[in-house]
């Protein structure tokens, strides 16, 4: 097993843990944390392929874009979650069932 495979396996483990969080959690913020773990696992893969593909910088650029997307996604998601909390006084994702009150 060479080094690239080690990094890819770390990425795969992080991905599965993040997906586990997304599937099993009911709290919307905990689901958001799972999504962040998944994005991190994708980033580990990008940077690992950049490093072992002859130090190709495109992988690092893509990792940078993923980080920017994650920041935007976290801000919008938290704004939505706070709105849901004001309407339902709970952020468990199985409780809100209407788009408009």
């Amino acid at each position: 097993m060479d080094q690239l495979q080690t990094y890819l396996i770390i990425g795969a483990v992080l991905f599965c843990l993040g997906l586990y969080g997304v599937i099993t959690r009911r709290n919307a913020i905990a689901i958001l944390m799972g999504v962040e773990l998944i994005l991190n696992s994708a980033n580990v893969n990008f940077v690992a392929f950049a490093r072992f593909g002859g130090m190709n910088m495109s992988g690092q650029i893509f990792a940078l874009f993923v980080i920017i997307m994650a920041a935007a996604e976290a801000a919008v998601a938290l704004a939505i979650i706070i709105n849901i909390y004001h309407l339902y006084h709970s952020i468990n994702v199985d409780e809100p069932s209407e788009l408009k009150l």
Binding site: N43, V47, R51, M55, Q60, A63, L64, I67
Partner: peptide, 13 residues
């Protein structure tokens, strides 16, 4: 994960 990036020669990331 930031430490892993540094191991992968991606200091800026």
């Amino acid at each position: 994960v930031a430490g892993l990036y540094i191991y992968l020669w991606a200091d800026f990331i």
